[in-house]
């Protein structure tokens, strides 16, 4: 009897261990990224030698915020750049994306030709932090953008463009509903295949690419706190918490896919298509890095 009990307990523990182990590496990566960013920005002026050799003392001591903790990094460069943050706060007093949220809500409730609505696919709109997911049946990553298009297709509607317009509006509504509900980023790696997609995304993120031979990490991990064309670069940590984003440069909203296309161009490579395996895997990896952070969208960026 005792033997049986022990065996059952051992089996149970083994299965629990393997369920947890699919994200073991991802958890290590996430914690190390948090540790890196928190250490780097614990005291930028004091860390000049180790983290900011090319910055001036003046910049580090006067312009930068100290002691930044994980959740604050969702503000991007405004987490540490005091000047950028005060401009951000000003624009956020009258956010230019309110109409987009309303338009998104209307799209959410609008009937398809078959009489159903998006509710049939997404009963709860507060799901911005749940995506991307790995679909074990399909063996691929499903981003929120792809899930929305799948819903449209399943209901006999035409899929939408993935960078702006209706897609960005509906995602703005989902983001705002998630923010209001106090949701956090919650990305799951539940299987070996999911872990492989995560690893593929991570490798793509850290691989140097394009004419300029830059990786995403050159600018958004090691490069955070440095400037490119007079813009401070934001951290990978928190990159997916607040999309879609209203960019002053765009004079409108754009999805994560749209933003990343711009960064691909900056690297001198042919941009990856929204919905491509490359894009989906990279987004899966990026979103995992923001796990447990509050959803905080839509947001505004220069």
């Amino acid at each position: 009897m005792n033997v049986i009990k022990i065996t059952v307990a051992a089996l149970l523990m083994a299965s629990l261990a393997s369920a947890a182990s699919f994200n073991t590496q991802a958890e290590k990566d996430r914690k190390a990224l948090i540790a890196y960013m928190e250490k780097k920005f614990s005291d930028p002026a004091k860390n000049k030698g180790s983290f900011f050799p090319y910055s001036t003392n003046e910049e580090l001591s006067k312009r930068f915020t100290k002691g930044i903790k994980r959740d604050a990094f969702r503000l991007g460069s405004y987490a540490y750049d005091k000047g950028g943050k005060s401009q951000y706060d000003e624009v956020m007093e009258m956010p230019p994306f309110e109409d987009n949220i309303d338009a998104g809500k209307a799209l959410y409730e609008k009937k398809f030709a078959n009489g159903k609505t998006f509710k049939s696919c997404f009963p709860d709109p507060a799901i911005a932090g749940e995506y991307p997911k790995f679909d074990d049946k399909k063996g691929t990553v499903v981003t929120l953008t792809l899930a929305i298009n799948e819903c449209l297709k399943a209901n006999g509607e035409k899929p939408w463009k993935m960078k702006k317009g209706k897609m960005a509006d509906l995602e703005a509504y989902f983001a705002s509903a998630s923010t209001e509900a106090g949701k956090k980023v919650h990305i799951v790696i539940q299987s070996e295949a999911a872990a492989q997609a995560y690893e593929a995304g991570k490798k793509a993120y850290y691989s140097q690419r394009g004419y300029l031979k830059l990786s995403c990490a050159t600018c958004h991990v090691q490069g955070t706190g440095k400037r490119v064309r007079n813009e401070y670069m934001s951290p990978l940590l928190g990159h997916t918490t607040h999309f879609p984003v209203y960019r002053l440069k765009w004079q409108g909203l754009g999805t994560l896919e749209r933003r990343i296309e711009g960064c691909n161009k900056d690297e001198g490579e042919k941009p990856h298509k929204p919905g491509s395996p490359w894009m989906s895997n990279v987004l899966y990896f990026m979103a995992y890095m923001s796990n447990e952070m509050p959803v905080d969208g839509p947001a505004i960026r220069k």
């Binding site: 190390a32 490798k203 850290y206 990490a217 090691q222």
Partner: peptide, 24 residues
């Protein structure tokens, strides 16, 4: 060069990952 960089990245990408090849 685009193809060669893929080869090069095989040995360099981990050097940029915090907690892996990138020590801080």
């Amino acid at each position: 060069r685009a193809v060669q960089q893929v080869n090069e990245a095989e040995t360099t990408w981990r050097l940029a990952v915090p907690g892996d090849g990138f020590k801080f």
